[in-house]
């Protein structure tokens, strides 16, 4: 290791930064098209069915792109970071399955007086993933 190279970002660090920025960009684009798909028919194109179908397909296609970029981002992480992500994904998948189905059961058997919305499950998944990643990171500190 020479003095010149000591503080210069390495190719791996630059790649990691690029992958993170790319994931942020594609996630933002996907979220924006999600908003467009939900609010466009009412506020932008007066329920034109063709435009609505295009918006739904565009949102779906951009969602797939976001998943691919996420895979690329995870592949670019180092082995400890990958393990933290894998654990967080496992916890999120497991808890989402059992909490999601329990929540659905509560609705089906009328133990709650509101509809079990899919958005509630998505919020739960997001919060679980964030918490599991935070705890996983802390455990290795």
């Amino acid at each position: 290791m020479t003095d010149n190279t000591k503080n210069k970002p390495t190719k791996w660090q630059q790649e990691h930064k690029k992958n993170t920025a790319k994931l942020g960009l594609w996630t933002t684009i996907w979220v924006l098209t999600m908003a467009l798909t939900n609010f466009g028919p009412r506020f932008l194109w007066d329920n034109n069915q063709t435009l609505t179908i295009i918006a739904v397909l565009l949102n779906f296609a951009l969602g797939l792109k976001m998943v691919l970029v996420n895979i690329q981002h995870i592949k670019g992480l180092d082995e400890m970071q990958q393990r933290i992500q894998l654990n967080a994904m496992g916890i999120t998948l497991g808890l989402s399955l059992i909490v999601g189905l329990t929540y659905s059961n509560l609705d089906v058997v009328n133990l709650i007086n509101f509809h079990a919305e899919i958005s509630h499950l998505v919020i739960f998944m997001g919060l679980t993933y964030l918490t599991a990643t935070y705890i996983g990171t802390r455990n290795y500190q």
Partner: peptide, 10 residues
Amino acid sequence: AAALEVSRQT
């Protein structure tokens, strides 16, 4: 970390 291409946390 830079030499081994991992994060400082690792």
